[in-house]
């Protein structure tokens, strides 16, 4: 972070205090309280300080009977992980090649900036509206169904385009591919072009350059983008709610529902488990790179 400089840099460390205060009040304390309250008791209208493990026991009820069906909790986690994996794979594929085009094929910087902004601008608009905007395309009488029927490819409208796993994943890719593009692009423009020229002069093909030089050197960007996408999908309840027609389950939705019924300690226990799993995923991914070097 801080580089040694031959210039004098004034010390203003106290200026970070208000910034730190916000994170203390709205990040550190809330997370601590969540852990504490996950051991509390509750009834219909209030939460009661206690030290019980029922909230956790309840979550894993029936999960360790191996002759029975998979319990609700494991099913939900599996389906959430499934959404994560698919979204991750798709955003990585699309994001990587969009960044690849921008970083290596677009030669003039102004055009690079304009194309980059084209990718970024939707990020500054409403997510809900971006989800809603799929309805005219995916609906039973949507553009895609109508076109397919017109072309004679299908006889009756496809029902699973909207309010399904398909539409959820489509929307997630639509919303979050940018999280892959930015860090991967950032890694790519740092690559010394002379390495690539050298490989090319030595007779390497584009695919060899891609797999032997660019992908290894982009690993940090890929990991950072992956962390963003995976964590955002792990805790998602808005996209799965709207695009799943409120029919699909996710951990985020369970927490949200429990909060609406004021079962706060139960929600807190679920949140702690979600946080725990998210942290494990992040640690596993950062094993592949030295993240400090990148900052």
């Amino acid at each position: 972070m801080t580089k040694i400089s031959r210039y004098f840099v004034p010390k203003f460390s106290w200026l970070a205090l208000p910034f730190a205060a916000v994170f203390f009040l709205f990040f550190v304390i809330p997370l601590f309280l969540t852990i504490i309250v996950s051991f509390w008791d509750y009834n219909d209208y209030s939460i009661i300080p206690d030290l019980i493990f029922e909230n956790y026991v309840y979550i894993f009820e029936g999960c360790f009977q191996f002759d029975a069906d998979l319990c609700m909790t494991f099913k939900t986690y599996l389906s959430t992980l499934y959404f994560c994996l698919l979204t991750w794979g798709l955003t990585l594929f699309v994001g990587f090649f969009v960044a690849y085009f921008l970083a290596f094929y677009v030669k003039t910087i102004p055009i690079q900036i304009v194309l980059f902004l084209i990718c970024t601008i939707p990020f500054w608009t409403s997510n809900v509206i971006r989800m809603v905007s799929w309805i005219p395309l995916l609906g039973r009488h949507g553009l895609i169904n109508d076109t397919l029927i017109f072309l004679g490819i299908i006889d009756a409208p496809v029902e699973w385009f909207l309010y399904s796993e398909f539409s959820v994943i489509l929307a997630l890719v639509h919303l979050y591919t940018l999280f892959m593009i930015v860090p991967i692009f950032n890694s790519m423009i740092r690559i010394d072009k002379s390495i690539i020229e050298g490989a090319y002069d030595a007779g390497a093909s584009e695919i060899q350059i891609l797999t032997n030089i660019i992908i290894p050197l982009c690993k940090p960007g890929i990991v950072i983008g992956s962390i963003f996408v995976v964590t955002v999908v792990m805790g998602d309840f808005v996209t799965i709610g709207i695009m799943g027609g409120q029919q699909l389950a996710s951990i985020g939705k369970i927490i949200n529902t429990e909060m609406n019924y004021l079962q706060l300690p139960g929600a807190a226990a679920n949140a702690v488990i979600l946080l725990f799993i998210t942290i494990i995923i992040i640690i596993t991914m950062t094993k592949f790179i030295d993240i400090r070097k990148e900052l």
């Binding site: 997370l31 969540t34 946080l275």
Partner: peptide, 12 residues
């Protein structure tokens, strides 16, 4: 990168 719903719950 903390899941939004977790933070929302904590602040609530």
């Amino acid at each position: 990168i903390v899941p939004s719903i977790v933070l929302s719950l904590g602040v609530a």
